[in-house]
């Protein structure tokens, strides 16, 4: 069963000079299983993205006028890696996608201004532990990101999803012994 996202408007708190972090975390704690959070703020709450990503939420942020932002945090459904036949790029021999671990982090970068999706994806990729996998949803094929991932030694695979507008990218930081090879 899916719930409508819980709505939290922290703009009055922010305009009064207050700090809404406690309210936000209480709201997150009170969400039903599978329920999202719709947050309204007077700026793009970037630090919050990382905090809630650790709790398994992906986010979609958009500016709604007058400098205000709407961010929808969605709890990530358990995802499995794409099978090799689904991808336009095969995983490295010996490390097929089917043996990649579940993604340690999920990003939803679909509503970000370019090149922000590339910036966020690389920033999150750098935080991965060796061997960990990151999943990122993008609104177009990340043509400038892919050569950079290759330069940094990441394995990646990606393709467009059934809706034809979402590009799902999985990338894996090489394990220490692989990196040393």
């Amino acid at each position: 069963m899916t719930h409508a996202p819980y709505e939290l408007d922290v703009r009055p708190i922010l305009r009064a000079g207050g700090e809404p972090f406690k309210e936000i975390m209480e709201a997150v704690g009170g969400l039903a299983s599978g329920q999202g959070l719709r947050l309204l703020a007077t700026f793009q709450p970037v630090p919050l993205f990382t905090v809630l990503a650790r709790k398994g939420f992906s986010h979609a942020a958009r500016e709604i006028g007058d400098g205000d932002w709407e961010v929808i945090f969605t709890p990530a459904a358990p995802t499995v890696a794409l099978s090799p036949s689904e991808t336009d790029y095969p995983a490295e021999p010996g490390h097929p996608a089917s043996v990649w671990p579940e993604p340690a982090r999920h990003l939803d970068n679909r509503d970000l201004d370019p090149p922000e999706p590339m910036v966020r994806t690389l920033a999150a990729a750098e935080e991965l532990q060796p061997g960990e996998v990151l999943s990122a949803l993008l609104c177009r094929e990340p043509l400038f990101l892919l050569p950079e991932l290759k330069n940094r030694g990441y394995e990646w695979q990606g393709n467009f999803q059934d809706d034809k507008t979402t590009y799902k990218l999985l990338l894996r930081k090489p394990a220490k012994n692989e990196a040393a090879e």
Binding site: P115, E116, V119, L122, A124, E127, F144, E148, N151
Partner: peptide
């Protein structure tokens, strides 16, 4: 602006503070 940003900061993204385009 975009090409200069990518040329100068592409390899630094995520590793240190970089400017936006």
């Amino acid at each position: 602006a975009f090409l200069t940003w990518l040329e100068c900061y592409g390899a630094l993204l995520g590793k240190r503070v970089t400017p936006r385009v």
